[in-house]
Design a protein around this nucleic acid. Sequence first.
DNA 1: CCAGCAAGCGGACCTCGGTCCGCTTTATTG
DNA 2: CAATAAAGCGGACCGAGGTCCGCTTGCTGG
Lengths: 219, 219
Amino acid sequence: MSTPLPPFPRGQEPSGAPVPLELTVGPAAPQLRADAARNRARLLEAATRLVEEHGVANVTMEAVAVAASVGKGTVFRRFGDRTGLLMALLDHTEQQFQAAFLSGPPPLGPGASPADRLHAFGCRVLREIHDRLDLYIAAEPDASRRFSSAPYRVRFTHVAMLLREAVPDADGVLLAQTLMGYLEPALIHHLTRQCGMPLERLESGWHDLVKRTTCPVSD
Amino acid sequence: MSTPLPPFPRGQEPSGAPVPLELTVGPAAPQLRADAARNRARLLEAATRLVEEHGVANVTMEAVAVAASVGKGTVFRRFGDRTGLLMALLDHTEQQFQAAFLSGPPPLGPGASPADRLHAFGCRVLREIHDRLDLYIAAEPDASRRFSSAPYRVRFTHVAMLLREAVPDADGVLLAQTLMGYLEPALIHHLTRQCGMPLERLESGWHDLVKRTTCPVSD
DNA sequence: CCAGCAAGCGGACCTCGGTCCGCTTTATTG
DNA sequence: CAATAAAGCGGACCGAGGTCCGCTTGCTGG
């Protein structure tokens, strides 16, 4: 329609919403051929090593390809683009986290009140991102995809669901986007690195925000 | 410290915070030489034309240089980078807007209650961005500068100030960042273009958000 | 075991943002 | 008006992300 459009054939793109190739809850890997799977593993390993050796900012796609003894095209076919590769590096942690808030023990998982789950959720995300901030920043998709990536959608849907439960008569979608905005890597980076705020302050801020959001408004 | 660092000599960078060359409230242009000023004007004109002819996404820096009959280096010296050029295209509107909420008539300007000013502020920003969405999206600085750009800082400071007035015992800075997050071009793009929400719904969402934010919380 | 064929591969290639540096123009000052 | 310093200029150049397309390789059914 407007965007230049699909870079590589990859899977089942053509139908409706662009299906992200991974990073979603559960494996759902579409049966890679043996050599492809091997190369994928090599690439992830190489990328991990390069990132911790030189810092994510200095890791180029070509360097990863070379380090994995693989052609550059292969990197792009497998991961789509740089963002895709970087997100794949966060996939394992992400899946664990998803499992934790979807079906783990309270207060993160089901069993606690929606508000309590929200409080726990935010703190967990804040710490998670804070611990691997550079990677999260670098893996941030560009503006037009920021809200469509699988991990974002899963988190967002979860927050929206909790919010609908906690404040049924509010616009849960908009409120959820607002809360999610507080958890953006770029903001966390700004506040902790550029403004020098301790993580604890961000956590208090989150608690306050949740309180204000879930308290019934006069109107 | 960590970033690759300054591209061009330009002005008085070295002292402390990186002083953005324009886009701040007031003119403060540092006396361009005659030819430089002429080229600057040419460039802005050419860029404006190209943007409305081909859409901002298809406008390259080189194309702008050629269209303005100027060397490519000149574009970068004058505007720093692509983001800088695009922001300059928004500068005129931005200055008018700043004047309106800093010293214009209520409810946007001083005279109304902080809460009323916040309500007005958000609606104005929403419309402003909605009207030139593509340009705002394209002009968005990368993650590490999103919160340091002059226009952002002015808006943010304003919101924080109003918030401190309206809810003195809250963490105004964090609350302000949250409110600002609701006004991000990328989010507005997602909600209106990808989710198909009408602008009116975003406005209601803003009003609700301000209400919840400014209502005293039980603790 | 072989043939056929998708899936996968890889590196040459392109584009575009950003940089460098030797040359030109402008402003200043005596 | 000359001399001079500084500001500006511009296009060759570079690096990195992303694409293309002819070749290779692993699967599958006969």
